[in-house]
Simulated scan of single mutants.
Amino acid sequence: MEDYYAIVHNDFDGTASAAVYARAVGQLPKNTFFTEPTRLHNFLNKLELRGVKKIVMADLGANGSTIDAVVERLKWITSQGVEVQWFDHHVWKDEWKTKVTEAGVKLYHDVSTCGAGVVHKNMNPDDDFSSKLASADCSVDIWLHDDPMGEKLRRVVEYSPDFSWKIHLMEIFYKGVLWNDEFQSILERKVDEELKGYNKLNKYFKVIEIDGKKVAVAIRWRGPPDISYASQYIMTRTGAVVFVSANGKSISFRSSKYEIRRFALEFGGGGHPLAAGAALRVPAIHRFFRRIGVRRFMMNWVTDKVENAIRNAGFQEFRENRAMSH
């Protein structure tokens, strides 16, 4: 097979997507690039093809403010005789799909699974290892929490922010290794750190009641534990059915029972049914007080916004429609 570039999201799902694709074609990419969906247009504009005739993109959603710039660059790339495949599971508008396919891109879009799941279903559905990796990845990426390996591997992937670490993991997954002694050692260290951090969480969240349901609202802290693991801990301890966190610039929603993407849409955001987010800039004065250790002003401001959004959107139970094989 000819050389190809992989361009993926800089998280577990992006890393797993690249590994599943490499196994499907029997070859690691010439280069793997990690980026964010909101920065994709800038990345593509700077990308030098250097003779490569194939580009694979995965786990990178389309963004309304940048899609036209992305499409223009993709048109140029395909005009150079480069084959482009784009695998994604985020919510797309039909017009975005049309623009991308008209630019000559082969788009694989499926909201019922995670990014690695889209690659697996379309490229190598019979590969048992890819099925296991995609299952673990989907479990944490779209907040299904139905595969214990997902919680373990997520900690390993997030052990280091360096892209070289993710490439190292991709190469291990490519070889068909899901777990090894190195991963076990990292997991044990990470869990020890998290256990020490749980004691401080009470200062960072409050629980409110909306329409008879408990909602936990948190102001971000410096981990460990990180926000994902802490959210599960807090919901279990308090009986909250929705977890919301804000860091001053953005807000995120999590639930294992209710469709929370509808809440993110109230803020102009989006995401998955059980994991979504949006931009939310907290007033400077509240952020100032938070920096000096006074969190209640920011907490109250965010809580008011959250309560209004949830009341406007209303609670709706999540109905799983995922059709991915494990």
Rank of each mutant, 00 (worst) to 15 (best):
M1F: 11
Y5I: 01
A6I: 03
V8R: 08
H9E: 09
N10E: 15
T15L: 09
A16M: 04
A22P: 09
A22L: 09
R23A: 01
Q27R: 15
K30I: 06
E36V: 03
R39K: 13
N42K: 14
K46V: 03
K46N: 15
L47Y: 01
L47F: 02
G51L: 06
D59Y: 14
G61C: 06
N63I: 15
G64P: 08
S65L: 12
T66F: 07
I67A: 05
R73I: 01
T78Q: 09
Q80V: 05
Q80L: 05
Q80S: 11
V82Q: 09
V84F: 10
W86S: 08
V91R: 04
E95T: 10
K97C: 01
T101Q: 15
T101G: 11
A103L: 12
V105L: 07
K106R: 12
K106A: 14
D110Y: 05
V111G: 00
S112F: 02
S112D: 10
V118I: 06
V118A: 07
V119N: 06
V119G: 06
N122L: 07
P125M: 01
F129M: 10
S131A: 11
S135P: 00
A136Y: 08
D137V: 10
V140P: 01
L144N: 08
L144H: 11
D147M: 02
D147H: 12
P148M: 07
V156R: 00
V157F: 15
E158D: 14
S160F: 00
P161R: 11
S164W: 07
I167H: 01
G176A: 02
G176H: 00
E182R: 14
R189Y: 05
E193C: 05
E194T: 01
K196L: 14
Y198G: 13
Y198L: 15
K200H: 02
K200S: 09
N202L: 02
D211P: 00
D211M: 14
G212D: 09
V217H: 13
V217C: 13
R220G: 04
R222V: 12
R222G: 02
R222W: 12
G223I: 05
Q232V: 02
Y233T: 01
R237Q: 15
V241Q: 05
V244K: 05
A246C: 14
A246L: 06
K249G: 13
S250I: 00
S252C: 09
K257S: 10
K257P: 09
Y258E: 08
I260H: 03
R261G: 00
R262H: 03
F263K: 08
G269P: 04
G269R: 00
H272G: 12
H272I: 10
P273F: 02
A275F: 11
A276K: 01
A279M: 11
A279S: 12
L280D: 08
V282Q: 07
F288W: 11
I292Y: 04
R295M: 11
R296K: 11
F297C: 05
V302T: 12
T303K: 06
D304R: 12
D304L: 10
D304E: 15
A309V: 02
I310C: 10
R311L: 10
N312W: 03
Q316M: 12
N321C: 02
